[in-house]
Amino acid sequence: MTGPSQFEISTAAQDGGQVITPEGELDLTTVPLLEQRLSEVLPIGDTVLDLSRVSFIDSTGIALLVSISAMAREHGWRLELRDHSPHVDRLIKLTGVTELLGSSGE
């Protein structure tokens, strides 16, 4: 496959909040899509960002996770990151910013 990233974002209601599940590769071609979705749902209620279907993440994706976590804290919105796959966990560790992300839902 040599085209642009295959990427989808699904949204599901759960326990009065919402679970956002991006699927595919998180890089500069797809981060704006996830950023927009998160900025829409975060003010509404509790949000879980399920990373179990993310197959790749680079510093552009990490920067989004860091900035969106900071924005949630600033506004008092509840955001939980969870379910890194082992593969993504390894990529996040490679970027060296694990400590910036707080709870990883392990």
């Binding site: 890089d27 500069l28 790749f56 680079d58 390894r90 990529l91 490679l94």
Partner: peptide
């Protein structure tokens, strides 16, 4: 797999920097 992850990440950063 570990080397491929490292290559994917580093290449993505280099290309992203050039694009941006």
């Amino acid at each position: 797999d570990a080397t491929c992850d490292a290559i994917a990440l580093a290449v993505s950063e280099a290309l992203t920097n050039a694009v941006r």
